[in-house]
Amino acid sequence: MTTGKDDCMTPATGAADIAPKNYAWEIRATALKVRAGRRRIAVDGPSLSLGTGAHGLLGPNGAGKTTLIRTLATVLRPAAGELELFGTSVSGVGDQRAVRRRIGYLPQEFGYYKRFTVREFVEYMAWLKEVPGSDIPGAVQRAVERVGLADRADERMKALSGGMVRRAGIAQAIVNDPAVLLLDEPTAGLDPAQRMRFRELLQELGRDTCVVVSTHLVEDVAAACSDVLLLAAGRLVFQGTPEEMAAAGGPGHPGDSPLERGYSALLRNSERKEGTW
């Protein structure tokens, strides 16, 4: 596929984008439970209402962050509770294509054809997301520009560094101008300058998109997110602003910043309540 000058500013707009909005929240979950394997409950009962803005999802390894992100992306189905996206229940087994067209998703690990160029990869993902064919060239160009890969758009994926591959993954996640954007460890492999640019992009996207970003890097959340969700052992133990999280900690808690100390304090409190220490 080729890109002409006139295509670069063509917006990717479909019927879902211009339909009236008749729901209160992009994401609403009630007493959500999701299994990892047959027996273990990885997400254990959180209730969430998330709208426009950048929402940071924090938690230690094994807390259930990836499982929750995959469930919001409709990759996994809830074992119990209710999940609504754009006012539509996705807890059942019905056709979810209309909902998925409005979602952007970057998993921790994603596959791609190594011989594809960056442009071909993002074009292919736009096609899979059913972006109208006439809109694809412009949508792809805007996506690669937003992640700083315009000068590498015609290089093969196999020739890119790990950080550039990650940025290509972010480009495919935003190519359909999603109403809900789900990012699982998006800054893995990015250098400090790229992480700063990503934070700026996250703030920009959060102005008119519901973004949920899972990360281990507390400072990324502090710099770019309007609120924070903290998972521990599959349970939601905190939801509030970065400032409120920071206020939960004190000098006696581990961490190099007020937010890290607040994070440590909230995790310690959750462990006390669960009796795990």
Rank of each mutant, 00 (worst) to 15 (best):
G45I: 07
K21L: 12
I41A: 09
D7W: 01
P60V: 06
D17G: 12
P11N: 09
H55Y: 03
M9T: 14
A63K: 03
T66N: 09
L58F: 11
K5Q: 12
D17I: 10
A15T: 14
G14W: 12
T13S: 11
I41M: 11
A12T: 13
S47F: 01
L48K: 03
G62W: 09
A15F: 09
R38P: 00
T10Y: 00
A36V: 04
R40F: 15
G37A: 05
N61M: 02
V43S: 11
I41Q: 10
G59K: 02
R28T: 03
E26Y: 10
P46S: 05
T52W: 08
R38D: 14
V34M: 01
A36W: 04
L57P: 00
K33V: 05
P11Y: 07
D7E: 08
L50I: 13
P60G: 07
T30L: 00
I18G: 13
R40T: 15
K5D: 13
V34R: 02
G64V: 03
L50Y: 10
K5H: 10
L58D: 11
I27W: 09
A29H: 01
P11S: 04
K21N: 09
T13V: 15
P20F: 10
D17T: 07
M9Y: 06
M9G: 03
R38Y: 12
A24T: 14
D44K: 01
S49T: 06
R35L: 11
L68N: 10
Y23E: 04
R35Y: 14
G37T: 05
T66A: 05
A15V: 07
G37P: 00
A19Q: 09
G37F: 09
R28M: 11
P46M: 04
A16V: 11
H55N: 08
G64E: 06
G64F: 06
L58Y: 12
P60S: 12
R39K: 08
A54V: 03
G51S: 09
G51I: 00
G59H: 02
N61V: 02
G51A: 01
K65E: 07
T13Y: 09
T66C: 06
I18C: 13
L57E: 09
V34W: 01
R39F: 04
G62I: 10
N22G: 12
G53A: 10
E26F: 04
L32W: 07
A16G: 14
A31G: 14
T30Q: 08
G53M: 05
G51F: 02
A19P: 09
I41N: 07
G56Y: 02
V34S: 03
R39Q: 13
A29T: 04
I41W: 10
